[in-house]
C-alpha cells in the first residue's frame, strides 16, 4: 500500500557543546549561542534520515523541517534541503526567547497545527540540554500518541505505523496510529550525505531576514528566486497565548550557574616504579579493597 505522507521533522540548531568557550553564558544564565559554532543537532539528523526513508518508500510524500531559533537557524532548513527534504519553516520571534522545554513545545505545537502533518519526527534529545522533553511535550499539546527512543520506523501494518524502539535492556516494537510524534535515538542509522544537485539548487534559499541582510553584501545575489524563500513564522503567524511563549511561558528558571571547577583533594602521587606500585597493591589488599 502506498500512501503519500506529510512528514515534519523537528530539528534544532545547537551550540557545539564540545567547544564551549568562556564567554558562552550570559549573565541571566541563558546561553550565549552567538559565541559558539552552531550545528545541526545530531539526533535530529537521525530523525531526518528516518523521514527521508519513509519518503523513499512512499513516493509523493513530503518532508518538511520545522526549527525554532534566531535568524541564523535558517541554516537548518538549508541543510535539510541539501539532504533531500522538500522545505521547511523557521519559527523565529523575539517573543520566543528564553523558552524552556515547555514554552518551546508550545510554540512548536502551535506551528504544527498550521502544518497538519501525518507524522512528526524529532531527535530524542538535543546535545545542549539533553532533556528529551520537547518531543513528548509536543505530543501532549497536540493530543497525539508518542513513540520515543525509536531506532527504526519499520513501515505500515494494519494501517498503523510500526516502530522499533531501543530501550536500556533490549528492543520493543510498537504499532501506532497516525498522526503521531516519534523521537529518534542515536542508534538509528546516520543521515545520508548532502546531495550535490540539491546543494547547488538550494544554497541560495533564504529567509526574508537574510535577504535584507544580504543587501549589504554585494558579493551575494541580492534577491533569490521566490521559490527559494524560507518562510519565517512568528507569534503573529501561529497565534496562541502570548504569555505561553518565551520566558513568561517557562516555569523553570535558572537559579545559578557554576562553571566546573575540579575540587582538589589530597592525592598521593606515585611513580611507575615497581616498588611504589607494589606498595599500593599491598595496601589495597590489606584494606580489602581488592582480593
Amino acid at each position: 500500500m502506498t500512501k503519500k505522507l506529510k512528514i515534519v521533522v523537528l530539528a534544532k540548531q545547537v551550540p557545539d557543546t564540545r567547544n564551549v568557550g568562556k564567554n558562552a553564558m550570559k549573565e541571566d544564565g541563558t546561553v550565549n549561542r552567538a559565541a559558539l559554532p552552531a550545528i545541526f543537532n545530531p539526533e535530529d539528523m537521525n530523525a531526518l534520515e528516518q523521514a527521508l526513508r519513509l519518503k523513499d518508500r512512499h513516493p509523493g510524500s513530503v518532508v518538511l523541517l520545522l526549527t525554532m531559533g534566531p535568524a541564523r537557524a535558517a541554516e537548518i532548513i538549508r541543510e535539510g534541503y541539501y539532504r533531500g527534504a522538500d522545505g521547511g519553516v523557521l519559527l523565529t520571534d523575539r517573543k520566543f526567547a528564553g523558552a524552556d522545554t515547555l514554552a518551546t513545545s508550545y510554540a512548536l505545537a502551535m506551528a504544527l497545527k498550521k502544518m497538519h502533518p501525518d507524522i512528526i519526527i524529532a531527535g530524542r534529545q538535543a546535545i545542549d540540554g539533553d532533556t528529551a522533553q520537547v518531543g513528548p511535550q509536543v505530543a501532549e499539546k497536540l493530543n497525539l500518541p508518542q513513540v520515543t527512543y525509536a531506532e527504526e520506523i519499520v513501515g505500515f501494518e494494519k494501517n498503523k505505523l510500526v516502530v522499533k524502539r531501543r530501550l536500556e535492556r533490549g528492543v520493543e516494537s510498537v504499532r501506532t496510529p497516525l498522526p503521531a510524534v516519534i523521537t529518534v535515538h542515536a542508534t538509528a542509522p546516520e543521515c545520508r550525505p548532502r546531495n550535490a544537485k540539491q546543494l547547488m539548487r538550494f544554497k541560495h534559499a533564504r529567509t526574508l531576514t537574510e535577504e535584507q541582510d544580504n543587501e549589504h553584501n554585494s558579493y551575494l545575489p541580492v534577491i533569490s528566486p521566490e521559490s527559494l524563500r524560507i518562510p519565517e513564522w512568528g507569534v503573529a503567524d501561529v497565534g496562541g497565548e502570548e504569555s505561553h511563549y518565551g520566558l513568561s511561558g517557562s516555569p523553570t528558571k535558572v537559579k545559578k550557574i557554576e562553571n566546573i571547577v575540579f575540587q582538589a583533594k589530597e592525592s598521593k602521587r606515585l611513580t611507575s616504579s615497581f616498588e611504589e606500585i607494589d606498595m599500593l597493591m599491598t595496601e589495597l589488599i590489606s584494606s580489602h579493597t581488592i582480593g
Binding site: P15, V20, D128, E258
Partner: peptide, 18 residues
C-alpha cells in the same frame, strides 16, 4: 533545587520552579 550538568557538562545549573 534541581541541580544538573548542562551544556555538555561544562556547567552545573541549579534549576527551580518557583
Amino acid at each position: 533545587y534541581q541541580i544538573r550538568p548542562a551544556f555538555g557538562g561544562n556547567i552545573i545549573a541549579t534549576i527551580i520552579n518557583p
